[in-house]
Each structure stands twice: as structure tokens, then as C-alpha cells.
Amino acid sequence: MTTVTEPGYGVTIPVTIHFDDLDAQGILHNARYGVLFERALLAWWGERGWSYAGGRPTRPDAFNVIREYSITFHAPIAGTGRAAVHLWLEKIGTTSADYRFRFLSEDGTVVHAEGRRVNVRLDPATMRPAPWSDDARTVVKELLK
């Protein structure tokens, strides 16, 4: 996977739109945006050694849940092909991480959608919010706006 650093903040990660991502009108189904964002974000973390093996997180900070997710659609992505997800971290709190994202055309000239996703780190033993580690805070510095 290739990521291109945007000037000033975040990363842009290419994504592939497949036929089964499309709705009956031949445009990217609204529910697939969340899946594609998730794949882009997991790929970014995975390149840094934070992933899942055997269905379990490889590091404690990878055990987190989505608290909030919102998206605003601007222009449909029509057909199969390539697009890009520009993502960044607006803020990292004690236990939460406020991600922002934009779905762009492959050449970056069209904003198809934009949104926000807030993750909360959990302690797997208690299922209660837990602080992000210093390691995670160091890794996300390149994503901070």
C-alpha cells in the first residue's frame, strides 16, 4: 500500500471500489464508505505494527470501539475504480481519538464525502475506557492536524 502525506497534516490512502461496493444505481453504496474508511485506517496502523492476528489485537491500544460516526455526502462515486481516503486525527484525548476523513477522487480534485469517527480505547478485562499508551500517542503524531 502506498500512502502520500498531505501537506501539513494527515495521510491520503488509495482505495479500490469493487462491483459489490455499488448500489443498484451503480454508485458507491452509502454503507461502504465506513468499510473503506476502516480498511484505510487499519492499513495505516498495520504498516506501523498495530494490527490483529488471529482475530485479536496485537497491541492493547488496538482494542477500541467506535463511539461516534458521521458522514456528509457531496458527490457520488460512480462505478468501480480507484478513490482516496484522506484521514487525520483532529484530537487525541485521554481515552478517545477524534478522526476526520474525506473521500476524494483518485486525482484529489473532487471531495465525494467527509466525516468524523471517534474511537474509544477499552480495557479488554473491564470493557471500560482506558488511556491511550505513550507508544500510540507517538505513532499518531503524523496524523494530528
Score class of each variant (00 low, 15 high):
residue 82 R to Y: 08
residue 48 R to N: 06
residue 72 T to F: 06
residue 17 I to P: 01
residue 21 D to Q: 06
residue 52 Y to I: 05
residue 108 G to M: 00
residue 32 R to W: 04
residue 86 H to G: 00
residue 77 I to M: 12
residue 144 L to E: 11
residue 99 Y to T: 01
residue 79 G to D: 10
residue 121 R to C: 05
residue 54 G to S: 11
residue 49 G to W: 08
residue 1 M to K: 14
residue 103 F to P: 02
residue 30 N to P: 02
residue 74 H to W: 11
residue 88 W to A: 04
residue 45 W to D: 02
residue 129 P to Q: 04
residue 32 R to E: 08
residue 36 L to V: 07
residue 84 A to N: 02
residue 5 T to K: 13
residue 36 L to A: 02
residue 14 P to K: 10
residue 105 S to P: 04
residue 119 N to P: 01
residue 47 E to D: 15
residue 30 N to S: 11
residue 144 L to I: 14
residue 69 Y to T: 12
residue 88 W to S: 02
residue 26 G to H: 06
residue 42 L to W: 04
residue 45 W to H: 10
residue 27 I to Y: 09
residue 82 R to D: 12
residue 31 A to S: 15
residue 48 R to S: 03
residue 98 D to K: 10
residue 117 R to E: 10
residue 126 T to E: 08
residue 52 Y to Q: 06
residue 93 G to L: 02
residue 82 R to L: 13
residue 91 K to D: 10
residue 78 A to C: 12
residue 32 R to H: 13
residue 70 S to R: 13
residue 140 V to W: 11
residue 98 D to I: 03
residue 125 A to V: 14
residue 69 Y to V: 08
residue 89 L to G: 05
residue 86 H to N: 09
residue 58 T to C: 08
residue 14 P to F: 05
residue 87 L to A: 06
residue 83 A to Q: 04
residue 105 S to I: 00
residue 126 T to L: 10
residue 45 W to Q: 09
residue 81 G to Y: 04
residue 22 L to Q: 03
residue 42 L to D: 09
residue 94 T to D: 13
residue 96 S to A: 11
residue 119 N to K: 03
residue 51 S to G: 14
residue 68 E to T: 13
residue 91 K to P: 00
residue 135 D to A: 12
residue 138 T to G: 13
residue 132 W to K: 01
residue 2 T to V: 14
residue 89 L to T: 04
residue 90 E to T: 07
residue 129 P to E: 06
residue 57 P to H: 08
residue 135 D to L: 02
residue 119 N to I: 08
residue 86 H to F: 06
residue 117 R to D: 01
residue 28 L to I: 05
residue 5 T to E: 12
residue 129 P to S: 13
residue 59 R to Q: 12
residue 57 P to F: 05
residue 142 E to N: 10
residue 57 P to R: 05
residue 42 L to Q: 09
residue 23 D to Q: 10
residue 121 R to Q: 07
residue 23 D to K: 12
residue 78 A to N: 10
residue 83 A to Y: 00
residue 92 I to L: 12
residue 95 T to D: 03
residue 100 R to S: 04
residue 133 S to F: 07
residue 21 D to Y: 05
